[in-house]
Each structure stands twice: as structure tokens, then as C-alpha cells.
Nucleic acid binder design. Structure first.
Lengths: 220, 220
DNA sequence: GAGCATAGGTGTACGTCGTACACTTGTCAA
DNA sequence: TTGACAAGTGTACGACGTACACCTATGCTC
């Protein structure tokens, strides 16, 4: 009788903890995300989590690897340019879904999905004929661009074409004396009417970079 | 007699608080940076700070504007390419000095130095003959690259050529089964011998982007 | 089935954080 | 000299991460 009415309550596991953590962080953002909140979400006392993760830092590392797992990796035999283009676009999308991950993707403790992803991407470059040095350069620009774009998108608050205008407008109000910042005023007034789309903006810069890389393929 | 021996103790001011905050954050990193620690550094009780800043968030906004003030802005009349190149390089250096600022540069409450910097940079592009749409694109790629590079540099722990090798080595140990990640193994083994220099790496990608932009200047 | 080791979950407690609120003290204008 | 306002203080609260000792359910061995 002591346990008849008890809900069976599926047991915790590292995977369940990580999954719930990602969902919770998606909803609350990194600031609102706490061990205590996660425990509550799982119907468990906070300390129960520590049977499955070492501490919050390690939990975040595990969550980040889930984000890596959601990104497409280049697969062997694919055309290098479209492979890299696809992985960059899916990386941005994953970072948009999980914006709490943005400053934490390259921690000191990479998980298996991270390693697989980087290995596949590096492999794509090498197989495409980039020299080792060139492949390092190419990787560096691309990842910097991807992470940086995601960061800007999050911080500037671009979501839809309209909200891009709103974000610009919000900044405008801070400006105070418009005469001091004529070029910003232009941005604020003209951006809304151009129908700014972050996905297109991302692709534009990405193609610029890929064009540049194409010309260097096979060189020293 | 009550105050004879008392050290005069220069009074607090918003500027002094911000300055000390930047220095402390440089030393301790963002995690170790607390209102209480800052108060102690200034020889004052924690709540005294709140007479000069609204709260921690607003304090950080003010600190970020100091970082913006340390970046070179393009000045009128300068050749657009070298102006942009210079500001990008000085931006990276500032972010390297103040790596706690990296995820926080574009907050919802830009300060005056931020506005000046963005206005000057946008102005440089427009005066150079980039169309409005093109200038937006150009700005977006560049800033994404700058912020993203700074982020990678911080998280991957590249400091000197040697430590780049060490960072790679550290990752190598996590790999476990090297056969699964042949291309990462190549990175880990060959990177140390190539004498990786982050400043050069940054410039390489920057020039790739600027080359791309040059070809689009004056177009639609 | 009985007994028991071990993994999973609990409860309490500590130190740290940001900051609200009520107060004392210092400074300067009149 | 005074008295108002700005600057600095002290105490306190609720949230956080997590150490540690404790219970309890699970599943293996006989």
C-alpha cells in the first residue's frame, strides 16, 4: 500500500537530464536556467541531478553536444561547396533554436558530436583539395563567421523583418541627437522598408566567404 | 579627531566605478566578477555602488562602452579599405584585452562610444561608394567575423603559437580513438609545427572578406 | 524467494550572489 | 550656521550551486 498509488515516475538518466535541460534552457534562456529549476521540471529534488552530471558546467558541456548533434555534417563524396554551405546554414539554425549555446560551443571539453562534426568539416576541406594551411584558414573564417553571426542575431534581436526594424528603432531612441549619427539614422529609417531577412543576410556573407575560398582552393 | 587619521579616500563616481570594474573583470573574468568584489576593490561597501549604477546589468553596459571607446573608428577621408582593416584589427585587440565583453557588445542599451563607432564605420562604407543594401551586408559580415573570431580565440584558448598547439593537444586527449577522427588528428599533430599565430590568422580571414567586398563596391 | 551491495533519490545546510530598504554621514549653497 | 541633498553604510532576504550524510529501490547471487 505504501507505493500503490505512486506514479511509477520513469527513472532519471543522463540522457533524460540533458534533454530536459536543453528544452528548459530554450524556454528560459541561460540566465533563467538553474539546477533547481531543472530538477523541478523533472519532478525531482535538486541534488538528484548530481547523480547523473558532475556539476552545472559539465551539464552545459553535455547540452552543447546535443546542439552539435543537430547540425548537419558534410558527408563524404558531397560537393565541397554545397556541403559546407549546408552545414553552415544548419549550424546557424541550430544556434538560433538554442541561443543559450552561442558562447559555449567550443569549451575545453568537446563531446563526441563536436568531434565528429569538426572532423567531417575538416575532412571535407582537405578532400576538396585545400592544403593543410589553407584548410585551417578556411575553417577559421567560416566558424568565426557562423558563431559571430549567431551572436549578433541574438544580441541585436533580429527575428523577423519587422522586428529588425523595431530593434533599429529602439536604438534610434537612444541616439538622442540624430545629427551626431547621420549614418545610423539612415540605417534606422531605411532598414525597415527593405524587408531585412536574417537568413538571407547570413547566406550573403557566407557566399562571399565561399567565393573567396573557391579561388584559393589548391593553392599553397 | 574623529576623522583626522581617516584616509581622504577619493569619492566614488560612475567613471571610477566603471574603470575599476573593467580592470577587475580583466583580472578575474566574468565568472569571478561580482558587485561585492568590485566594492571591496574600491574600499567601499557593496551597496555604495548602487548610488552610481542602477544594477549589475547596467554596469556591464557601461563597461562595454569603455571597450568600444578603445577601438579605432574610421575617420573621414581615410582610404576605406585600410580604415576598415585598421578598425577590425583594433577591435579584435580590444576584445582580446577584455574578453569578458565578447558576448555582450551589442546589448539592448548601446552607449555613446558604441553609437559613434558604428556610425563612423557605416559612414566609411557609404562614403566609399557602397550602396545602402551593400553597406548593410558589408557591415554584417565584418562584425560577425570580428566577434566570432574573438569568441573562438577565447574559447579555444589560443594565446601564443605554443599554446595553440597545447590546446590542440588537450583536445586530442579527449578524442580517445584517433582512428575515428583522422582529420582532427592531422590538425593536432601538424598545427604546432606550423607556428600558428592568431593575429595572422585573423588578418587572413579579414583580407579574404575585404577582397570580396572590394569587388562589390559600387554595385547594386 | 532471501539477502545484500550498489545505484538512485532525499533533506539539510553552507557560502555566495544581487540588491531592497532604512539609516547615517558628508558636502555645499544660501 | 543651517539644512537639503548626495554619498556611503548595515542589515536582511531570497535565489543560487553543491557538499555531505542519509534513506530506498533495484537487481544479482545463492
Amino acid at each position: 500500500m505504501t507505493q500503490r498509488t505512486k506514479t511509477p515516475r520513469t527513472r532519471l538518466s543522463r540522457a533524460r537530464v540533458l534533454q530536459a535541460a536543453v528544452e528548459l534552457a530554450d524556454e528560459t534562456g541561460l540566465d533563467g536556467f538553474s539546477m533547481r529549476g531543472l530538477a523541478q521540471e523533472l519532478g525531482v529534488v535538486p541534488m538528484a541531478l548530481y547523480k547523473h552530471v558532475a556539476n552545472k558546467e559539465e551539464l552545459l558541456d553535455g547540452m552543447v553536444d546535443i546542439v552539435f548533434a543537430e547540425m548537419d555534417s558534410p558527408s563524404a563524396g558531397e560537393d565541397w561547396r554545397s556541403a559546407l554551405r549546408g552545414r553552415a546554414i544548419s549550424a546557424r539554425e541550430a544556434l538560433k533554436r538554442h541561443s543559450w549555446a552561442i558562447g559555449r560551443m567550443e569549451s575545453r571539453h568537446p563531446g563526441p558530436a563536436n568531434l565528429r562534426h569538426h572532423n567531417a568539416t575538416m575532412g571535407c576541406l582537405r578532400e576538396a583539395g585545400f592544403s593543410f594551411e589553407m584548410a585551417i584558414h578556411a575553417y577559421s573564417v567560416q566558424d568565426a563567421y557562423i558563431y559571430g553571426f549567431a551572436l549578433q542575431e541574438r544580441d541585436l534581436g533580429f527575428e523577423t523583418p519587422q522586428s529588425a526594424g523595431e530593434a533599429a528603432q529602439r536604438r534610434a531612441e537612444t541616439v538622442g541627437t540624430p545629427d551626431d549619427y547621420p549614418y545610423l539614422v539612415e540605417v534606422v529609417t531605411r532598414l525597415p522598408e527593405t524587408g531585412y531577412d536574417p537568413a538571407l543576410e547570413f547566406a550573403w556573407g557566407l557566399d562571399l566567404i565561399l567565393d573567396g575560398l573557391e579561388q584559393l582552393r589548391g593553392k599553397a
